[in-house]
Design a protein around this nucleic acid. Sequence first.
DNA 1: TTGTAAGCGTTATCAG
DNA 2: CTGATAACGCTTACAA
Lengths: 350, 350
Amino acid sequence: VSIREVAKKSGVSIATVSRVLNNYPDVSDETRRRVLEAAREIDYTPTQAARTLVTKRSWVIGVILFTGLDHPDIQHPFFQEVLAGLKHGVGAAGYDLLLFANEADSDGAGRQSYLTRTRHHHLDGVAVMGVSARDPMVRELARSPVACVAVDIDLVGPRTGYVMSDNVGGAARAVRHLFELGHQRIALIGGPTETRPGADRLLGYRKELDTLDLEYSPAYVQIGDFYPQSGEDAMRALLALPEPPTAVFAASDLMAVGAVGAAREHGLSVPEDLAVVGFDDVQIAALGQPPLTTIRQDKVALGLRAAESLVEMIDDPKATPPALTVPVELVVRESCGSRVRVLQRGDARG
Amino acid sequence: VSIREVAKKSGVSIATVSRVLNNYPDVSDETRRRVLEAAREIDYTPTQAARTLVTKRSWVIGVILFTGLDHPDIQHPFFQEVLAGLKHGVGAAGYDLLLFANEADSDGAGRQSYLTRTRHHHLDGVAVMGVSARDPMVRELARSPVACVAVDIDLVGPRTGYVMSDNVGGAARAVRHLFELGHQRIALIGGPTETRPGADRLLGYRKELDTLDLEYSPAYVQIGDFYPQSGEDAMRALLALPEPPTAVFAASDLMAVGAVGAAREHGLSVPEDLAVVGFDDVQIAALGQPPLTTIRQDKVALGLRAAESLVEMIDDPKATPPALTVPVELVVRESCGSRVRVLQRGDARG
DNA sequence: TTGTAAGCGTTATCAG
DNA sequence: CTGATAACGCTTACAA
C-alpha cells in the first residue's frame, strides 16, 4: 500500500507516481514536483521485491567465494581486495552484492546449486572466485544464460568470461629479476597446477628460464597451495637438495613468507644467503621482515574490471564476455638483496 | 507462471504446491510425493521476490562495513574473519548476506540511509561493523525496529545490541604479561578513544597499571588508528622520550608491527631491547618476524555470536538484544622475549 | 485434504 | 500528459 500513499497524498494515480519515480519524461513538471515532495514527506521507499517481480531485475549481483571456516578464501588477502574493487564497481552502477553462503542448510539438506540460487534471488549477474573451473556447479552456471565473470579462473561460456592478472608475464618478470641479480639456480615454489594462476606462473617460470638459457630442473619445482605452511615445506625440500637453489620465486607472498621462515630456520638469512620473490603483493609483503620483493597484482583493478564487465553484459544481453588480462608490476623491496628500494604509495599501510 | 507449471504437471492446485513446498503437514503423502517429483523434474525454484512480497521476509541479512578504497575495513583482517563467522552463522540458518555498497550512486545522488536501504531490500536484519556509533545513519538504524547487532561497537536500541571482545580484560592481561616478564616502563599505543575498543583497551591498560602499582604516565600513551603507519609514528614518539619504555602494548597487531619496524629502524631489536605485545591475533601476527605475542580475539566467534543473536531476534520479535562479551586469550610467541612458545592450532597457516 | 481467490507493491499496457 | 487495470509469482484465509 505504499506507492498508493504517495499517490493519494499527491492526488495522482499510482501509475503516475511510478512514472515519476522511474524518471519517465512524459510527466508535467508540476506533477513531478508534487509527487516527489509527497514521497519525501512520507519517507517513501520503493520495495525492491515488487520491482523485481515485474521487471525481472534485482539490482543484486552474487559473489561466489569459498568460505569454509578452515581455509576461507574470504580470509585470503587477495580475495579481500578483489572484493573491495568489485563492490566499488558494482556499487557505482547501483548494484548491491550478495555473498553466497556455502554452508549446509540447517535442515541438513545440502545447499542448492549456484544457478538455482541465482534464479531464486533473481540475481542480475554473478562474480566467481576461488573455486575450480571444473566444479560441476560452476560449469552449470557458466553454461547458463546468466551474466557471469570469473576472477583468475578461465571460465568461459555464452555469457561467461573472466579477468585475470598477467600471470605468465609476472612469473617471467620475477625470474628475470633474479637472473639480473646474478642468480642462476632459481627454484620455483608453485601453486596447484590445476588452477590457472598456478599453471600460468609455472609456465612463465619455464619460459623465462628458456629465454635466459638456464637449465630447467624438475627438482627445483615444488608445488604448494598458496598458503604459508606449504611454502615452508617446499623450501625445506629445496634446501635438502644436494645443490640447493640460491634464489626462489614463490607463486604467492604467503608461500614466500613460509619459505623465508624455513630458510631462516635452516640458518640461512634472506637476502644474504637466499633471494626470494613472491607474487601478489598483499599487505604482509610490505610489512614482513625482510620486506618482500614481489610481483604486484592490481587486485582492486581486477575487481573493478570484473564489475564493469558484469554491468556491461547485464545492460547488453549480446555483449561479448570479457577475457581480460590485467598487467602486473615488479615491486622491489629487500628480499633479493637489491639495494634499490621502490617506495610505493600505500606501502606499509593499512 | 512457475509454481503453476508444477501444479499443472502434478495435477493439483498451486495452493497445494505451495503447501508442499513449505512443508505444511496437511497434505497427503501421495500428493506430496507427486508435487515434489514434478518440481524436481522441471527443476523448479521458488522466486524469493514473490515470497518476500507476501511474507515480508527476505531471508537476507545486511552487512554494513566501511569499504572506501582508501582504508577499507573489508581489507582489515579482523573484519574479514568476523565476516566469515557471520556468514557461517547466518548461512546455517538459511540466510544470505547482502553487502551494503557505500559508494555514491552513478547518478550522483548520494546513497540512501541504511534504514531506507534495509527497507528497500526488506532485509530481515543487519550486522554493523567498522562504523561509528555516533554516525547519524547508524543511530537511525539502531532506533528503528529492525533487528540489528553491532560488532565491537556499543550500539543499543529497542531491537539492536552488540557483541564485542573483552577488551578491558585483554589489555589488562597484556600489561600483566609484560609486568611478569619484569617490565616496569610499559607504554601503550592505543586506538582512537572514540571507538569502544580503543577506549576499553586504554581503560584496561590503566586499570592494570593501577593494580600492579605502576605509575601511569601520559607520555607513555600514544594514540594511533589501528593501522601500521600510526604504530610506527607512535613508537618513534615513545623512543624520543628521555626515558623510553622497555615494553609496549599496542592495541592492534598492525600497529604492533609498525612499532617493531620503528624500533628496528632505531637500532633496537625485539624482543631483546624492547618487548611488544599486540592485540587481535590476525594472520600477520604469527607470520611476522618476530612472531608476535598478542591478545587473541576470537573473531570467528564474534561473527557467529552476532549471527545467532540476529537469528534469534528475527525469530522472536520480543527477544532481548544481545550485549555479549567474548573472551580473549593471551598467545605467547616471541616478541616479548619469553622462552615459552605456545603453539596454537592453525598458527602460521592460511 | 484440497481448491478458489484475494492480495503483496510495483511496472507496463492501453485508453483517454 | 494521466488514469485504469492487468500482470509478476507466491502465500494464505476461507470454503468445500
